[in-house]
Design a protein around this nucleic acid. Structure first.
Lengths: 188, 188, 188, 188
DNA sequence: AATGAATGAGCATTCATTCAT
DNA sequence: GATGAATGAATGCTCATTCAT
């Protein structure tokens, strides 16, 4: 049943977060999910497929998180700040243990156009933000992907280093970082 | 001889870039390096040690590349631009196949203070740049690590996506991206 | 199934008898037992566990053999003679190839009290023989372990040397040896 | 030089006593002996040969120890008692770490007649004791090997169990055991 | 549909032995 | 003679995958 597939995905995510990529065996997943080893192969072609689907599963979750509490009628800056903080907060939340990237970013992922389109759709609100910003003359005239790397990627990167203890980021610094990211993409 | 150790490191780097972290076996490394499997263990304690040493090896290379052609008497902006491009260019060069990060960043690394200090020293020039910028009132008053994430990390990130074909970055966009990164860390 | 576990134990015993402790590899065991290498690890934690369990398995067999056809109502001397010959005969039988000690005695064995108690119970009849002999004033007042070494150990030792061709022991000599062992433990 | 050969044998004996048969590698022996790995092969054909020669080396030592302080003009019983105690004492002495049998008895040994003859000669005094005892009508008319197993083997066996902590043998018991062994081989 | 015992190729690592110096 | 770096087959063990039930 669908129930089982979900349990397998959840188990995989959990174990991946705990033991990392190396320490993940199909038998462990089976045990954690409460199914037989063979059952996994009824829902997933092989280990790669399991990981691919997990990627999609998590990406979906991420997209929802990133764009939550963001509505079209909010001022651009508010929308940006909300998204930036959504990304920042994700790292601290238990329900998405893999977002402490490193582990997520390096999941094997499919590279077809189909995959690309899906990802586009998931992050439609982000693209909309950048499109509006450019149309209004507020943002620099750069591809959305580049704007994203300049302004949102640092949020994820800082959060990861913060959470991993590489260095601390206090609230004041964090607010300054948000403004700096805003400075990066706006015209001067 | 030292020759063999180097060949083993080079082989590991190459195979890691091709097959990723998993799918890297000691026998593969041996074959690629043109030595016997047992020989690896003459130079490296075990697989972990091989990876640790590779990390240091590459980090050294990276640090040199990043700070090359950067001297203290250049204007801040020039220094910054040079470093940014150094990072960008690294991704395109065959001699450092792992810099298409993702794979490099996730090498297991030692976490002692000793390791941290070594890394600090390697990137002294980067820190100097940020320190001078802040002292002169040109840069925002933020920790060097944060400034680095805001301004240099995007270079690596864009380069990686560029090289992996996620999207194209033409020269004009690249120059605009450099300016945007500069905007991120300077006062307005 | 239990069948497989038994086959693995039998195969181990056989190969141990032929090739000795070293020269016993898990793959050899697997091949001889007609199972895949990995299957062994379904029934035994690791090589040590396999050897431990084999020890128990054989000790059980030995205990049964040694005390077979021995009943409490037989005269002491008859019981002793029967056990002595049971030990002697074991060496000649194909179903217990490791009894040509040397190899058996040096199997790694667990050393917990649990193990000790199990062994005590297995050889209860031997202890009973010695206890009765001492109670009746027929035997010397020595610990059972010492009496055992003086009277039964030589049987195993002679049998081993006989079987290994170190020297021949004809029937007359054997009977004399039994009497000699009896002389060793009885009062004079 | 002869010096090196001796050092290699001593090193082997020591390491064998500490790490057992399994944990003995040629590189360890080389290190302990203070020679290069390759040097071992100048004095010994291969690992087997090293072990064979160690066997002979130790057997020589054992033979000397067993028959020390034994002279032809001592009464039979005194000679016997001395040998019995020589065997018993060997187990406690540091200079022959392998005698705690198990490890020694299971060294691979050559089985040629040549080997047999050498062993005969080493234990000539033991044979002489038994021959005299039989000639005088004091001992049972049994092969020397059998007499040996009945009377001296228990000494080694008890000593081993004593030293390994299987059970304690106090002085009184030990004297009784010597008498019991004497009873085993004498006529009644 | 689901199971889980069985598989066997693959892994990291060791070590007896060789041989150029 | 002596060295010790190099070898590569062999080891104990794991784990993705299959398939009879």
């Amino acid at each position: 049943m669908n129930d089982k597939k979900t349990r397998i995905l959840k188990a995989t995510e959990k174990l991946l977060a705990i033991y990392g990529f190396h320490g993940l065996s199909m038998q462990m997943v089976a045990k954690e999910a409460g199914v037989a080893a063979g059952t996994i192969y009824r829902y997933f072609e092989d280990k790669d497929d399991l990981l691919h689907q997990l990627y999609d599963h998590i990406l979906n979750h991420v997209a929802n998180k990133v764009t939550q509490n963001v509505s079209d009628d909010m001022p651009l800056k508010d929308r940006f700040r909300t998204m930036w903080l959504n990304i920042w907060n994700m790292a601290n939340q238990e329900d998405a243990p893999l977002i402490n990237r490193g582990q997520f970013e390096n999941l094997p992922r499919r590279n077809g156009t189909e995959q690309r389109q899906m990802e586009q759709k998931l992050f439609a609100k982000v693209n909309q933000l950048f499109d509006e910003g450019k149309a209004s003359g507020l943002f620099k005239q750069l591809d959305n992907e580049i704007l994203s790397v300049l302004s949102l990627e640092p949020s994820a990167c800082l959060a990861r280093k913060h959470i991993n203890g590489v260095f601390r980021v206090d609230e004041t610094s964090r607010e300054a970082a948000i403004d700096a990211c805003w400075d990066a993409i706006t015209q001067h």
